[in-house]
Design a protein around this nucleic acid. Structure first.
Length: 119
DNA sequence: CCGGTGACTCTAT
DNA sequence: TATAGAGCCACCG
């Protein structure tokens, strides 16, 4: 797989979002806004969230539970099969979740830009 | 083709 | 410190 920089037209917006999300390592998370900025439109975080809404039927699977809002809150938990499914998956990856919020958010935060720079 | 919709985010009160 | 409003823009019918 290849993650293309902002401005790439080879794939749909959704596909680019999915590619980035699939790069998130286990035990790490990122935010909608971070992905949006990486793709080139800083204020289009909603599109990222919306892409997540459609990711359930996508193959290969997208680890949507590793994407939260900028405060580390599990804003999309209700869109999983069960409201507690997202939190469950995160805890499985050793991510601490309390009150629908990732505890050490800063520590587990993963920025797409960092991944590209470190290549 | 046009417009509602949304798992967000930032700014101003 | 809260709450409210606006910007954002691809997708689908």
């Amino acid at each position: 797989m290849e993650v293309l920089p902002a401005g790439t037209k080879d794939a749909d917006f959704f596909s680019r979002v999915y590619d980035v999300v699939r790069l998130i390592p286990p035990g790490r998370v990122t935010s909608y806004g971070a992905i949006a900025r990486f793709l080139g439109s800083g204020r289009s975080a909603r599109m990222v969230g919306w892409a997540m809404n459609a990711c359930h039927n996508v193959h290969p699977p997208v680890p949507a539970h590793r994407v939260v809002n900028r405060n580390g809150q599990l804003s999309g938990k209700m869109h999983f099969g069960h409201p507690d499914q997202m939190e469950r998956l995160l805890k499985k990856e050793k991510i601490k979740v309390s009150d629908d919020t990732i505890v050490n958010f800063q520590q587990v935060f993963w920025d797409p830009m960092q991944a590209i720079e470190s290549l």
